[in-house]
């Protein structure tokens, strides 16, 4: 720090800005989630609810439908339709919460770029944050939806559905739900983050939401 009293000298050489290691981005992302914890929880809740809804519909579909042939087919159609709707609701819900959480930080992105952040570093931060939020809340959402349906069946004493197919179906849905949730989260978060990172900093700083 002995340069403090020096006159800044001219004849500078402009170099490439250094690429910060992944660990640094990880560190900053974790901190960013932690310090805006309340906001992170609300965003995560958006993902959680969407996936929980989807998961509960799919889990209900794992139990055999009772009734005659025609009724079973009608019930299966209804369930399928419900699953699509659930997926749509969860898509819109997640996209909405992620879009909000990124766009409200355009100014912060502009500021970071003024301080020397590379575009790729800004995107990396949002990628890590979105992945963490997506995976954790999608898993929690799957668990929540699954638990509710399973508990309802347990309490109603309807145990005949808990067979091998149910458990393998459960495993499949765990994977599908976590994947879909994380995927939608990333798809909703990364494009606006990239857009903000590539804007001239002045434009990002001007943006109001």
């Amino acid at each position: 720090m002995n340069a403090d009293k020096q006159m800044p000298t001219g004849g500078m050489k402009v170099q490439k800005q250094i690429q910060l290691p992944f660990s640094k981005a990880w560190q900053i992302s974790i901190k960013s989630i932690k310090i805006r914890f309340a906001r992170s929880v609300i965003t995560a809740a958006g993902i959680f609810l969407g996936i929980a809804f989807y998961s509960s519909v799919r889990t209900a579909g794992l139990f055999p439908n009772s009734g005659t042939g025609k009724e079973v087919i009608a019930a299966e159609h209804r369930q399928q339709w419900l699953a699509y709707m659930a997926l749509l609701v969860c898509f819109v819900g997640i996209t909405n919460s992620m879009l909000m959480s990124v766009t409200e930080r355009y100014k912060e992105i502009g500021t970071m770029k003024c301080l020397g952040a590379l575009d790729s570093f800004v995107v990396k931060l949002f990628f890590i944050e979105a992945t963490l939020m997506g995976v954790i809340s999608s898993f929690a959402g799957w668990l929540g939806g699954w638990l509710i349906v399973v508990l309802l069946h347990l309490f109603s004493g309807d145990l005949k559905g808990f067979n091998g197919a149910f458990f393998s179906g459960t495993l499949m849905q765990l994977i599908v739900c976590t994947f879909i949730g994380s995927f939608i989260t990333l798809m909703a978060a990364i494009p606006p983050a990239m857009q903000a990172a590539q804007m001239p900093p002045a434009a990002a700083l001007r943006s109001e939401i």
């Binding site: 500078m12 170099q15 805006r36 912060e108 502009g110």
Partner: peptide, 25 residues
């Protein structure tokens, strides 16, 4: 290029704004 501009903003220029633009968290 973008990387050299980032270097310049980081090392050569310091910015002060009317609205401070501190990172609130």
């Amino acid at each position: 290029d973008a990387s050299e501009l980032a270097y310049l903003r980081c090392h050569t220029i310091g910015y002060i704004f009317q609205t401070f633009n501190l990172i609130p968290v």
